Amino acid sequence: MTTALAAPDPAVLIAGLVFAVLVIDPDHRLARANPVAEELFGQSEARMQGKPIAQIAMFEEPRIAALLTDAEAQFVARDLILGVEAGHRRVNLTCSPVPSHLGWRVLTFSEIGQGERDADGDERVELRAPAVLAHEIKNPLSAIRGASQLLERRANDRDRPLARLIAGEVDRIAELVDRMQQLGSRPATPSKEPCNLHQAIRNAISTVSTGRDGAVSIEEAFDPSLPPVAADAATLEQVLINLVANACDAACDAESPRVTVRTRFASGLVFNAIRFGKSTRLPIEIIVSDNGAGVDPALRDHIFEPFVTGKTGGQGLGLALVRKLVRDLGGRVSHERDERAGLTRFRINLPVAEGAGA
């Protein structure tokens, strides 16, 4: 006989939701926030409690700001620009009054472009498209390369370099296609092996530094007390190589070019990621910062999308691949620009290895 289980407490259900939830009291002040809301707004629930909602969720659309002060308003709004401490986010918003408690409301926020699946549960087009293109391109590429090799054998000395040029360009395109396929592959199960975070960072820094002239200073600011993270070391190193190399490129034109890789335990915030049907805390944080000019403001909301780049001649696949690999690890990556400090920061949040403590 199956024993009936008690229904989960509503607070537990809200804490496990994949979107941000805020509970607003009749005075338009925040009463409760779930972990995803803490992540979205960059503040802990304790820090936000009692603040007017207008000081927490700032919208460029005046009508939305006015609706948030209407205790009886019920609405759904899509593709809004939300101002938070770390910058701006594009979100969908719902506002629902609580019928049994006059003046109380529940707000939900879902970030646009952050999920890997759409509302129907299908893989996002941005991840499907590279895989489809790769499949269609690879076969004719093989034929072109074979033809170029045949031409090289038959060509005279004057024309042989042209045949080699064709082969070289085909190889370059093939490498790009391989990276596109990585974007389109299905998420892998995150490794549960304990990984030495700082060793992975040092390996990445060493790889990036090799072959560079040392003009950009790469500094470490590590918290030595951090426990091991749950991650595949090779995948994490690939992510860090991308971010550190990008940071060095971004800082190279600064007067005193500097890249800093910092690690810390995010004790003030509880980062959650919903992966494989369960909620996972992500308290281990890696911050890669540079003092370059920063990403073009027009691109900042899209830099993790494929084929979006601010680099001359860039392919726009590096950061899209970083986001996919971090998600495959069960983590989260985000970007922010601190104009006051003149710094661009990329943050990676990862889970603690099982049994390592927190």
Rank of each mutant, 00 (worst) to 15 (best):
C195M: 09
C248V: 03
L321R: 07
I64F: 11
R264H: 08
A131H: 15
G211Q: 04
P187D: 10
P224Q: 03
V18N: 12
T3E: 13
I112F: 11
A233E: 13
E111H: 05
I218A: 00
H198T: 01
P187F: 14
E220T: 00
P297V: 06
D249F: 09
L329W: 08
L150S: 12
E123N: 05
A174T: 12
A353W: 11
Q182C: 06
V91C: 00
E61T: 07
S100L: 09
D328W: 12
P140W: 09
G314Y: 15
P306G: 10
E255T: 11
T263M: 03
V229R: 09
M180V: 04
F59I: 01
E85A: 06
V261G: 01
L17R: 09
L82G: 00
G310R: 10
G103V: 05
R337C: 05
L299E: 07
F109N: 01
A174F: 07
P224L: 05
R154Q: 13
A293K: 09
P227F: 11
V333S: 08
L319A: 00
A65R: 15
T189M: 11
R347C: 04
Q43T: 06
S267K: 12
M180P: 02
Q315C: 12
T108N: 01
Q238H: 14
V229Y: 05
A188H: 12
G184Y: 09
V322T: 00
G292Q: 05
V216Y: 04
V106H: 04
D290Q: 03
V216S: 01
P62Q: 08
I201P: 02
A31V: 05
V239A: 00
R332V: 13
S96D: 14
P194L: 10
G115Q: 15
I241C: 01
S279D: 14
T69A: 15
L80S: 02
S334E: 10
T312Q: 15
V84G: 06
S110R: 15
A33K: 06
F265T: 00
L40I: 02
N203H: 11
G42Q: 07
A167Q: 13
A129E: 15
L329V: 02
S209I: 03
K311F: 12
V352N: 04
A358L: 15
H28L: 07
E38H: 02
T3Q: 14
I218C: 00
V333L: 12
I64A: 01
P10G: 07
D157F: 10
G294E: 04
L226R: 02
L343H: 09
R275P: 02
A20Q: 04
L282P: 04
A234P: 02
A119G: 09
T235S: 10
F307Q: 06
I287L: 10
I56V: 15
L317E: 00
I274W: 14
R300H: 06
K51H: 14
T3A: 15
D159V: 10
V295L: 09
L13H: 04
V177G: 03
R63W: 12
N34P: 04
G87K: 05
A129F: 13
G310V: 11
G331T: 03
A4E: 13
R258W: 06
P228W: 11
L317T: 01
G268N: 11
L269P: 00
L243K: 01
S256I: 14
A54W: 08
Q238K: 08
